[in-house]
Nucleic acid binder design. Sequence first.
DNA 1: GAAAGTCAAGAGCACTGTTCGCACTTAACA
DNA 2: TGTTAAGTGCGAACAGTGCTCTTGACTTTC
Lengths: 241, 241
Amino acid sequence: MTGIRDRVRAEFVAEITEVARRHLGEHGAAGLSVRAVTRDLGMAASAVYRYFPNRDALLTALIVAAYEGVGTAAREAESALDRDDHAGRWAAVFRAVRAWALEHPHEYALIYGSPVPGYSAPQDTTEPATRVVLLLVRIAADALRGPGLTPDGPPSAPADLRADIEARLTAIAAGMDPERAEMVTALPPETALAVIDAWTALFGTVGFELFGQYDGVIEARQAHLDHVARTTGRATGIPGT
Amino acid sequence: MTGIRDRVRAEFVAEITEVARRHLGEHGAAGLSVRAVTRDLGMAASAVYRYFPNRDALLTALIVAAYEGVGTAAREAESALDRDDHAGRWAAVFRAVRAWALEHPHEYALIYGSPVPGYSAPQDTTEPATRVVLLLVRIAADALRGPGLTPDGPPSAPADLRADIEARLTAIAAGMDPERAEMVTALPPETALAVIDAWTALFGTVGFELFGQYDGVIEARQAHLDHVARTTGRATGIPGT
DNA sequence: GAAAGTCAAGAGCACTGTTCGCACTTAACA
DNA sequence: TGTTAAGTGCGAACAGTGCTCTTGACTTTC
C-alpha cells in the first residue's frame, strides 16, 4: 500500500484546483495562468505538471468541479422541499441555477459559455454535465406518478423528432443503474422533449442575463426567470405551474 | 479633402479585420494573435497599432461584424417570404440563425458565448446585437396587424414583470425612428415577453447544439429547432405555428 | 543499506500583446 | 515651391505566457 503517498498527492491536487478555481473567479478561463497559480502556492511552475499533464487537464478538473457545483446547488434546493411539491421543486431548480450562476459567473461561463478554443471536453465531463437535466427529468417523472399530468399535457411532436427522442431515451437508460433507467424509459417522449426544452430555456435565460444580452431589454430578472419556470413547467405538464 | 488617405486607411482596416476573421474561424477568439494576423499580411506586428489601439478593439470590430452577419442572414431569409406568411417568416429566422451558427461557429461563440475575459462590450456592439430580436418583434407586430392573434394569445404575466416590460418598451422606443417606435409601443407586454422568450429559446437551443450540450441527448437537431420555432411561435400568438 | 521510484526546481524555447524610437512618405499650408 | 506636420511601417525590447527537459534531492521498497 502506497496509501500515504496517494493521500498527500490527492490533497495537493485538491489544493491546486482550489487555488485555480479562485484565480478563475478573478480573471476568467483564458486568464488562468499556471504560473500565477503556482506562485500563489509557493511552488515552481513546472511542479504542477507532476499532477496535471497540461493546462487543459487543469481546466477539465475545474469544469467537472463547476458542473458538480451547479448540480449540487440545484439538488440541495430541490430536495429541501416536499417530494410531492412538484411545482415548487421545479421552480427551486430554476432559482438555484440562477443563484449559483450569479455567484460563480466565470465558472458558469466555463461550462455553459463558448468552449475553450482547442479544448475538447473529455469523457469525465459528460456525466456531471447531465446532473441538472436529470433533476428536471426526475421531477417530471415524479409528477407523472403522482396525481397525473394536466389534462392537455405536452403538445405532440412530429414523428421524426419523436423517434429520435425515443432512441435517445433507451440509449441513455442503457448506461444507468436499473432504478434510474426505469424512470427514464417510463417517460413519454413528449414529456422528455418538454423537459429538454425547459432545460434549454433555463440555461438560455440565465446565460442571456449573465452575458449581457438582456441589458436594456429586461430588468426584472428574477421575476422573468420565475415566469420561464412557470411556462416551461406548464408545457411539461407539471401540475401547479 | 483628405479623401485618398482615409480611403486607403479604411481599406486597410477592412483587410486586417478580414484576415482576423479568417484566423478567428481557425483558432477561436482567445487564439486570435495579432502577430499571426500581421504575419499573414506581410507586415510588422507593431504596424497594426496604427489602425487598432489594441487587441480588444480588433475583437470589437469582429463582434460587430458577427452581429451584422447573423442579423443579415436572418433578415435575408425572412424577407424572401411573403410578408403575410408570418409563420413562415418566424421559422425562417430560426433556421437562418442556426445555419449561420453552424457555418460560423467561432463567430457565434464570440458574440453569444462567454464574454472574452477582461473585455467589456463597448457601445458600438449594442445596436447590432438587437437585430435578430427586432426581426422577431417585427414579425409579431405584423401578425398582430393581420388576421389577429390566436384567440387565447400569450398567457398573462405577473404584474411586476408586466410593468418592467412596459417600461423597457417605452425606453427602447424612445431611441428609435418614429416608424419602428410605433411598432414597439403598440406591442402588448405579453406579446413582447413571448418574443423575448422565443428569442432566448432560439439562441439557447442553437448554443446548446453548438457547444455540445445536446450530444447524446438529442440528435434530430433541425427537427428539434423547427419544433422550438413552432412552440414559441404558438406562445407568441403567431397564426399558423 | 542499496536500488527504484517520485518529486521540485531551474534553465530554456517559442510564443504572446504592447511600447518606443527611428526613418520615411505624403498631404496641407505659407 | 519649400516647409512643416501628420501619418505610416519597422525592428528592438519588455514582461509575460505554456511547456519541456535535465538535474539533483528525497522517499519508499526490497
